[in-house]
Design a protein around this nucleic acid. Structure first.
Lengths: 331, 331
DNA sequence: TTGTAGGCGTTATCAC
DNA sequence: GTGATAACGCCTACAA
């Protein structure tokens, strides 16, 4: 391991000087600063986290706990943190965490803050973490009571409302929704919000939401298949199905097609998330795109401002509906 | 923060004794051990990780650098490490890394070892990391010269050979392949290996590989679309296309379908990776499944044995071809 | 502007 | 068995 001593020797200065260069103290002569920078590069030196932590109780790294991989988000988070000299570490976790066990790195104090992306925890565990670190929530899977500015998500009700309005304008009246349950039990906030949006659009159009057309299951293709089978078993099928994620929509469409139903001719199906595959699928799938780039950047900026005790401006991020063939013959 | 000193004072012993109690050294008298345990409980003492890390230069965590998310792999890695009391941290990186910048956690002494999953680095950077930490390679994206037991991947040539044999048995003779390039430049080892397998199967069947039927591009749907367009522009099209990943296969099939070509009736298409979507797609897609669970477990066991300086037995893992409609009318 | 020195909390090596 | 003590790598008074 390369230490600050090695750098100092290599650059022919004292380790205090090296430390000063690292910490941007500007009372270092340009000449020595350059010497030091050179040595750092040559030796590929990076300050040892343990040493720094012990001394400053600061690690310059942020933990992102995630349950869903979104490359765009990961890229954005990593890049934004990098700008500020922070390192992002990812920790993979199930979408729903009941106890704190899966979060050991959090408790080891190896990071300065935690971003929870698409992870739903028991409120007690959440508050326990929040006592130790700044926490930012991402993805709308759960809500903070109070600290709403630390919750980063699109307004799910609004986009669901817009999508539903589109279906209604296309003449659909019997709209089924497929909601999401995590760990076979809990419906995350974003799913409940989307339902609220759907109901609002229906209500405004004077259409009754038919409760029996709501199906709920976990994330994944099979939920879509089950939903499709359920709908096909009804005496009167829905004329459109709004699935609360794309995998569900894909499973749903596949099951319909296998039984000879045509999408969109016989029934509309919409998804959510704008996975790459939705543009490739036959039919291409209407869905909702989230600005994952912005979300990642925002999450990092938010957590850094918490860590550094500053305030940031409130930024709104918005989902955008994308209409494709599965809900629009002419698309 | 309560330290080991506080505990020592509270229990009326030296901190050395407290440390011994904590580290299960059994040369502590029962009487003092109890005293210490009592104090620890009363003060809610938890050893400071930074201190321990600094002293032992052991972090009990492993970094997994990945460019492709495979939930099965991540689960397996996390679970297997957990068994041994290790924590897995993930670090997201592009598939092809030219310099060491994206690997800062490695240099910060945050981890005891590194698993590189589907990440291709400059050889110089790789060797540099290997000088500092045990490294295990996963996914066949590059090769170790020498240390082959630390390279975990299926035998890509063999499965590609098997898939090609299947195509040949189905009567196909003009077989196109779509290879993979990372960062727009480098063809990873697994792609080259797959080509070797294809060529071998063709050679054995006495069929000439038609070089103009090889297309190469990056991972992703659009490569498949480009390949399809390329093939359709030829005076004589291939009768089967073996794409070296599923996204490419999907893009390829989509483009064919849009031009009115039917898969499998007019042309066969096979993929690689067994993404969930391949079973849902229309037509369902023949592909190769990799045992990601085993790979994850194996990778962790391998790296732990490196860290602890033990030897493990050599285990072979194998890919498995899965035949579906896209290469088999009756499937 | 630079270097020296002390200490953050822990464990390991000594003596006793 | 037990207790002093010396590191581990870093940052920051303080002295020069």
């Amino acid at each position: 391991m390369v230490t600050i001593d090695d750098v100092a020797k290599c650059a022919g200065v004292s380790k205090a000087t090296v430390s000063r260069v690292l910490n941007n103290a500007d009372m270092v002569s340009d000449k020595r600063r350059e010497l030091v920078m050179d040595a750092i590069k040559r030796l590929k030196y990076e300050p040892n986290i343990a040493g720094r932590m012990l001394r400053k109780s600061e690690t310059k790294s942020i933990l992102v706990v995630f349950s869903v991989l979104i490359p765009e988000f990961m890229n954005a988070v990593t890049a934004e943190a990098d700008k500020a000299g922070y390192t992002i570490l990812f920790y993979y976790s199930p979408a729903y965490i009941k106890n704190a066990k899966p979060l050991s790195p959090v408790y080891q104090g190896l990071v300065d803050g935690v971003i929870l992306q698409d992870v739903m925890l028991d409120q007690k565990v959440l508050y326990d973490i929040m006592e130790r670190y700044p926490v930012v929530l991402c993805g709308g899977v759960m809500s903070f009571e109070g600290r709403d500015e630390n919750s980063i998500a699109i307004d799910n009700a609004v986009v669901a409302y817009n999508m539903t309005k589109h279906l209604i304008e296309k003449g659909k009246k019997r709209i089924g929704i497929v909601g999401i349950q995590l760990g076979g039990k809990v419906e995350p906030k974003f799913s409940r919000d989307r339902e609220i949006g759907v109901r609002k659009a229906l209500a405004e159009a004077g259409i009754d939401m038919i409760d029996s057309l709501k199906y709920i299951g976990d994330v994944g293709y099979s939920t879509g298949r089950e939903a499709a089978e359920y709908y096909m078993s009804l005496s009167q099928m829905p004329d459109a199905v709004f699935c609360f994620n794309d995998k569900i929509a894909i499973g749903c469409i596949s099951a319909f097609k296998e039984k000879g139903l045509r999408v969109p001719e016989d029934i509309y199906v919409a998804g959510f998330d704008n996975l790459g595959i939705t543009a490739q699928f036959d039919p291409s799938i209407s869905t909702v795109a989230q600005p994952f780039n912005e979300m990642g950047e925002l999450a990092v900026r938010r957590i850094l401002s918490e860590i550094q005790g500053e305030l940031t401006e409130e930024v709104k991020i918005e989902g955008r509906i994308i209409l494709r063939k599965s809900t629009d013959e002419e698309a």
